[in-house]
Design a protein around this nucleic acid. Structure first.
Lengths: 209, 209
DNA sequence: GCAAACAGGTGACCGGAATCACCTGTTTAA
DNA sequence: TTAAACAGGTGATTCCGGTCACCTGTTTGC
């Protein structure tokens, strides 16, 4: 059965008319619990996701370690999945839901024709490519010139903003993994941030100012 | 006067039919000497380039320093220019010819309609976005985990391969700029590479093995 | 032809971060 | 309930790369 318009509500500013009908017909909507790995590295992609609700984070795995690349917010998609899907190449990244999330999944074999016929969806992906590229440049800048304390603080600020929570439940270990460093480093640096009054470590999480 | 088919020869595997005619009609071909800055940071883009002959290098300027992001080889384009052009936003990067080069320049106001009508050109940019994205991931990986010696060696290897020259005429200062580090660091690291037998510093350049 | 600019080399030093080894307190699972 | 696993804290050490100061030799431009 096709999806209903109300199910597709979040993307109705973006898609309309015939394309919306196509999506209703061929798309699938799925819910995922927080912390679900929705895409593994090396996986081949049959469905391209668009986030309707929630938050998904995307990681690049580098030998041994990994690094958080960006978040996919609602109404956004994942260009790495998109390109891996179109080229039928394995994914270089993996993705995990950061919150309980609802995803619209579009079959990759339809994408090719949709892209040709419907500029709306084409625009989405160009826009996404752009944004992600820009974010990667920021990441590089940060890796090149920012010290750990700045990187950590930015990371906490962004996460707090995206999740709309002042207090983040995070383990030092998890932070270290997302920033591609070691746990002890986080423990130390976060204490410096605390002394500078930028964050506060509570029993149930980290409060960000 | 429109461009001739022979002028457009390098892109004729990629573009054909009506699109090729459009390109012949609205495109411009220009030659640039080695070392010309063909795109400045902050500049607004009216023409999207496709390299017909030669080699162009693209840099990201970060506060004070800069970093070589990637090369545009013949038959490739620059996604940063493309996106800046389409969105009418200033360029975040700057580009310099690494060799004497011939560029096909496409007016940005045509791009939008071409992209909608001609999948061939759409595919080019998707493919380029992909490739550049992938290259950025490699850069990040390298920044995160590789030591200077490895980065420098990769840099020399790639440059040697792209230019088809075993002996590279490069100043330590220039290498430092492209890798976003300091001259003294290059002087030292390159000596280590020399001791390891990976490169050799000659009077007229650096030989890469 | 000479001074200035440039390329490269080098020692001393410093600071950030990674690693190692260990310790304490808390949570979890058998 | 008790051991194991986990979270976090900390000192010691090491290493890499950035910076400073300074030197030599070569190229260049007036």
């Amino acid at each position: 059965m096709p999806l209903t318009l109300s199910e597709l509500e979040p993307v109705r500013q973006r898609f309309s008319g015939e394309l919306l009908q196509e999506i209703a017909e061929h798309g699938i909507i799925m819910d995922f619990d927080e912390g679900t790995e929705i895409l593994k590295e090396g996986q081949y992609i049959k469905l391209v996701p668009i986030v309707l609700k929630g938050l998904v984070k995307v990681f690049a795995p580098f030998e041994e370690k990994e690094l958080l690349l960006y978040y996919i917010e609602s109404n956004q998609s994942c260009v790495m999945t998109f390109s891996a899907g179109l080229n039928n190449s394995p994914s270089r990244i993996f993705a995990i839901t950061e919150e309980d999330s609802t995803l619209l999944l579009l079959p990759v074999e339809k994408m090719n024709t949709w892209i040709k016929h419907y500029p709306q969806i084409n625009e989405l992906f160009y826009q996404q490519y752009n944004q992600r590229y820009s974010e990667l440049l920021d990441t590089i800048n940060s890796l090149l010139f920012n010290r750990m304390d700045q990187r950590l603080y930015n990371y906490l600020l962004e996460k707090s903003k995206l999740k709309g929570e002042k207090v983040l439940q995070l383990k030092h270990k998890q932070i270290a993994a997302e920033l591609g460093t070691a746990r002890e480093v986080i423990t130390r640096v976060i204490k410096r941030l605390e002394q500078e009054g930028k964050v506060k470590q509570l029993s149930d999480g980290i409060e960000v100012y």
